[in-house]
């Protein structure tokens, strides 16, 4: 009885499908922290939660949609953004939040990301960047640091990763930020802002994947958090082309872009539905 009581008292229980908790995320995985920040931001932003939907793709972060007690859609790999685009355009009253991972949003779904940002579709996209494909066992992704070891780059990753805020900015996103799971207050505030901004908002959140990435790169969960503490520097308003993500040189965090421009629907109404 005490346990049941304790469950129902967690401040986020009202927004959680508590009958599905504990979730599938591993011990030390940062996705849960990003998810919690997202739920807190939803509560505090004042948006109508009955008119809020979460859309996820595939992968560990893609499981996010399954734990929120709101309308939630767990779609196919990489396709959360176009699905969410259809949803938002069909019912502009909805607040549509895309919660997914780096592999999903930027490798298989990369094309959809840049186009949704270009169109400035009113979506809040939260990308948990754990630097690898966690669900399938830690393989290299489009965000894996150069020379990092993964099961598909056993001698080190020969490729260069994307700089996600720069990509988002170059594609036309109207809100761009990067945080880590250690910066929970900044992150929550940032998600809150993104939820209330018009246009395409993007927040990258660095999160440890101890099972997939950490294990092979000698990085325990608390080591990752130490890196987030020691190697990061907050530069709000920094030029996205300068926001490095390099464990040796440093990691730039902050809100880089917050600039309103007409959304897809603004332009569509003005251009195409003028006589309707």
């Amino acid at each position: 009885m005490d346990k049941l009581k304790a469950r129902s008292d967690h401040p986020l229980d009202a927004l959680l499908r508590t009958d599905r908790i504990p979730h599938i995320w591993c011990s030390g995985c940062g996705i849960g922290t990003v998810f919690a920040s997202c739920l807190v931001a939803m509560q505090t932003s004042g948006i109508d939660l009955n008119k809020t939907a979460m859309v996820s793709g595939i992968g560990c972060s893609g499981r996010g949609a399954g734990y929120i007690k709101l309308d939630s859609y767990h779609t196919t790999h990489g396709r959360a953004i176009p699905f969410a685009t259809g949803m938002k355009l069909a019912n502009p009253e909805l607040n549509v939040v895309v919660f997914s991972g780096d592999g999903d949003l930027f490798a298989i779904g990369g094309n959809h990301f840049i186009h949704a940002a270009r169109r400035n579709v009113e979506l809040t996209v939260i990308c948990v960047n754990n630097l690898n494909y966690g669900m399938t066992g830690g393989q290299a992704a489009a965000t894996t640091p150069c020379m990092a070891k993964t099961p598909t780059t056993p001698l080190g990753n020969p490729e260069t990763p994307f700089n996600l805020p720069l990509l988002a900015y170059a594609s036309g996103a109207s809100y761009v930020a990067r945080w880590t799971i250690l910066h929970t207050r900044d992150l929550t505030k940032s998600i809150e802002e993104a939820l209330t901004r018009r246009g395409f908002s993007f927040i990258e959140v660095l999160a440890p994947c101890p099972t997939g990435y950490g294990r092979r790169n000698k990085e325990k969960p608390l080591d990752s958090l130490r890196l987030y503490q020691e190697r990061t520097v907050i530069k709000n308003g920094a030029d996205p082309s300068d926001v490095i993500l390099d464990y040796q040189q440093g990691i730039t965090l902050g809100k880089f872009i917050d600039h309103e421009r007409p959304t897809f629907l603004d332009s569509y109404d003005k251009t195409c539905r003028i006589n309707f």
Partner: peptide, 13 residues
Amino acid sequence: HYCETICPDFAIY
């Protein structure tokens, strides 16, 4: 509330 916000498992508040 920092423990509450950093906890990935909704296990502390």
